[in-house]
Write a protein that binds this DNA or RNA. Structure first.
Lengths: 161, 161
DNA sequence: GAATAATTGTATGTATACTTACAATAAGTG
DNA sequence: CACTTATTGTAAGTATACATACAATTATTC
């Protein structure tokens, strides 16, 4: 039987540039943003090893800033839906960082509060998170860093909905 | 019993700026990137309604460009791990867009190929995806769009690992 | 004040994403 | 050739993310 012509080797020379051609999607902004998010999460995980995920840290900070906030308001504040936030709070509660307290005003709502370990966790993790943010933008000049932040904020402001 | 002082209403005035203060995390690059990715996924879903997810589209394009590529090489090409890619291919196969063919060279490897419906899907979805990319950057000037792409590419180039 | 509408947290289901571990296979070495 | 090492796809487990639907509750309207 003759060797098949459509094997991996021939496929790699089927495109104009075998192994490292541009592949259409690589230039799409959506793809770039996704890859960038992967990098940010990876850097975060490397620095804050195992203690918290980015979302858990954001939730912790928000609860610290707004004690007794409800889950829906918390989700809206940091940009999630209620369903996802429920799971995030579950894990923060399991770790003993956050407590769900019955709200005095709305019997549907859980008033979220930080426990002592939650405050300690923020204090211990915050410097690492700041380092992550600095490292993430480290390849950029100061001008580029400002441009990047301004552009991101502009995009987010125009895509609210 | 006196009314508790730590209810939601008092909490909202506990911070310097009740409902719309900056909350630390809101200025972090990692947070901005995450929100941006959410926007990109949302725009994609609105335009390409239900047919494909962003990852599925990227995989389809990559297989179209490199027929008989294996799952590990595909994952590396578009920036995923093998485990995630397995599930993505599962769904593309279920939809009849892609086939796993036994590789002629490596009996561990699945050679991935597009089926006819896969080619049709790309043709039908590609214009919509291009529209999404345009809409995503629409709030920016042409200069800002170029800056954004350059900055993203610079960041990704420096954070390969 | 009763009927309707809206909101809260939860549950379910789907789809990323990653880690670790695994069996099968391939590639490397002596 | 045997031995070691690396690679392939998969499985299992964890954690986002989102849509939809749901019961309990609150807000609104008549």
């Amino acid at each position: 039987m003759p060797r098949l012509n459509s094997s991996r080797a021939s496929a790699e020379s089927g495109s104009s540039e075998p192994g490292r051609s541009g592949l259409f999607v690589h230039s799409m902004p959506g793809h770039l943003v996704r890859r960038l998010q992967q990098v940010a999460v990876r850097l975060f995980a490397e620095e804050v090893n195992g203690d918290l995920t980015p979302v858990q840290f954001a939730a912790l900070c928000a609860i610290s800033d707004r004690p007794n906030i409800g889950q829906a308001a918390l989700a809206a504040l940091i940009g999630y839906d209620r369903a996802t936030m429920g799971g995030v709070i579950d894990r923060l509660e399991q770790k003993g960082l956050v407590a769900r307290v019955a709200s005095a005003e709305d019997r549907r709502s859980n008033a979220l509060v930080l426990k002592a370990a939650g405050h300690r966790m923020i204090a211990s993790v915050k410097p690492k998170v700041e380092a992550v943010q600095k490292n993430l933008l480290a390849p950029l000049s100061e001008v580029e860093q400002r441009q990047f932040e301004a552009i991101c904020l502009k995009l987010l402001a125009h895509h609210r909905g």
